[in-house]
Design a protein around this nucleic acid. Structure first.
Lengths: 366, 366
DNA sequence: CCAGCCGATGACATCGTTGTCGGGCTGAGC
DNA sequence: GCTCAGCCCGACAACGATGTCATCGGCTGG
């Protein structure tokens, strides 16, 4: 009985005893469980992975022992044996956009629900020797599965390197689907069209667009959707001057909004390619004394936290992050289930929705 | 010889061959290196950890072999042997504040520079059974070191649980230092005083304060610093009505700013306890047609990305995240170096700075 | 009644690395 | 020349879990 306790009856370990007073609870191993249940370690293992056939009675005894010892299998040892960590990898870069952070969070939730873990590695864009870093991440950490976000999910050398190391990838919102990795995408073009159609329905005709960062495929898709909406509605092509560049940043949004509002014939509505830029647009408009949404309607994209926080709250497109990450994990699980199947490179479309809030309203009669 | 193939030349493995065409490059093990260098695995290990004495010539041979095989030690196996993963743990909750995200990013950078890894686990505030989750994280993942952020770093049951499992913690900005874990803190009170003194120097007398989330110690410290500045300057206690509650969110900042600006005798300057709320304050002020900084000065806290992005750019306190996380890792390293030392529970103070931008200006003569 | 079979279980090896211990080699001192 | 110290280095085991194969029952069918 005693200091460390129970379960393992008395064990003679002194392994760490000299190391200070750490009453560190040494965790029970599969051997301890086996001993207590009066079976072999292998049988315990069988019970855990409910493999093959184990007598109900034995199974019960083992389970009881596990419970009594508060046994948790050691993931490190499992990883060693299996030549693979149970963790899903993800590469993180500059977090300032918020997009990456939200995906990361959603992925953690999805992993939690699937009994997995997430292991993140830093990748700064300008990093020299990124190959070695990735290699080390994969190789040392035993990562065999990864989720790639924009913009890395479009970086072919990275994908080649990962493939070379046998890492299975799922791509989130890649520019173009990859024949070897499943992709999780949303229909940016359709979403952008819905935005414009919503604005049309409110009577807007001159609509400005602040585009996204040119490196992200989504930027192009959203802009294309913007243009297509005109065609679909049988309207003439929009004035090209109404489309200004942006970069998904607040600052870029400010510049874009200024450019649009400085025009001789400014738009009555502005569709920014993400919420940060939309928020900046609201700010710039209010600074100029415009009343929102009466004198200017603004639409964002992403439904970031800021969209609901600011005033007026933003009409925006909700990206289904939960669903996207959930499917990403599901895709990895499925891949494991039927490993040999080469047909896994599916493209999975997720459902967005237009969230109408207070930043859009009918064109003011004037 | 060569059941598995020397030096990676031709190897006869078929382990995964049925598994599609994966030309998976199987990574070299310490045995491969040893074989190629003509030494025993143990010697290779010695070279890697530059332990003890190895002949320069041998060392050289081994290094060459390692290089030739592109050998990277397997962290999983090491972890198993060492009973500890090389990773530092961190608990992540709701990312919307941005604070956590920035720390996380800075920590990844610090880990990178120290050849370590970061392993994150999700902890939502309302989670039932968090004990089991933490236990699993620590126990299964082999985590022996952690960095705790607010508000978890003040949660005693959590710290007790971790201690019980022998996990070493470093606390970032805890409410009060812990006798068993080193803490990395900044002097929030002094920083808040500097903010107010800056405003005093611009001629402001009626200064509003939007406080932070009551659960965060920093909120109290910043408010106290706000009050102390008055005493230090020999001025009467500030009007209590000028201090309104907040919660570090954009939305909370909006509400706070509205409350302050709705007063009969509104303040000429507002000090928000973080940048999000300061940004909200700017937005609200501009919505009301106030010119910044002429009619209202605004100060934030944190130097979040938004501080430099919006117009006017925010005067704010820069929290030295890089330094804080760097020191956190250093503290862990030091702890390892002299494990038995109990004196590690130091409190490490980091240096903030007041960043003066465009959101503050002299009181308008009127 | 015995051969053969099948279902449940255990012994052993293995994953890649490192601590322990002892063996062998070298060189110095007598 | 011999011995012994001291330095390198390798054999072995161990970390905790699991795949492989053997084994040990008991059971059925001829």
């Amino acid at each position: 009985m005693a200091w460390r306790g129970g379960g393992g009856d008395q064990d003679g370990r002194t392994r760490d005893d000299h190391l200070s007073l750490d009453a560190t609870k040494v965790m029970a191993t599969i051997h301890d469980v086996a001993l207590r249940a009066g079976v072999s370690p292998k049988t315990v293992s069988r019970v855990m992975n409910d493999h093959e056939s184990v007598t109900a009675k034995t199974r019960e005894r083992v389970r009881a022992a596990m419970q009594a010892l508060d046994y948790h299998p050691n993931a490190v040892a499992r990883g060693l044996r299996a030549q693979a960590a149970p963790a899903v990898g993800i590469l993180m870069g500059d977090p300032s956009g918020g997009y990456q952070t939200r995906i990361h969070h959603a992925l953690m939730v999805a992993c939690l629900q699937n009994g997995r873990h997430l292991s993140a590695e830093l990748v700064e864009g300008d990093m020299a020797g990124w190959q070695d870093r990735i290699r080390a991440f994969v190789t040392e950490g035993g990562i065999r599965e990864m989720v790639l976000l924009p913009p890395e999910c479009d970086f072919a050398p990275l994908k080649a390197l990962l493939r070379e190391h046998g890492v299975r990838c799922v791509l989130i919102s890649p520019t173009s689907p990859d024949s070897l990795s499943p992709s999780i995408v949303m229909d940016d073009r359709a979403a952008a069209r819905e935005v414009v159609e919503h604005l049309f329905s409110l009577g807007h005709e001159r609509i400005g667009h602040i585009a996204g960062h040119p490196d992200h495929a989504a930027s192009t898709l959203r802009r294309n959707g913007f243009n297509e909406a005109y065609a679909a509605a049988g309207k003439p092509r929009p004035d090209p001057a109404l489309i200004v560049p942006g970069d998904f940043s607040f600052k870029g949004g400010l510049a874009g909004a200024q450019a649009l509002l400085d025009m001789d014939n400014p738009p009555t509505a502005i569709f920014a390619a993400n919420d940060d830029m939309a928020a900046a647009t609201c700010m710039e408009a209010q600074r100029r004394g415009l009343k929102l949404p009466d004198e200017l309607s603004v639409v964002g994209f992403d439904d970031a936290p800021i969209a609901a926080a600011i005033w007026p709250s933003l009409t925006t497109i909700r990206q289904p992050f939960d669903q996207m990450t959930q499917r990403a994990i599901t895709a990895l699980n499925a891949w494991n289930a039927n490993a040999a199947l080469g047909k896994s490179a599916a493209t999975i479309l997720t459902q967005h929705s237009l969230v109408i809030r207070e930043s859009t309203g009918p064109v003011r009669a004037s």
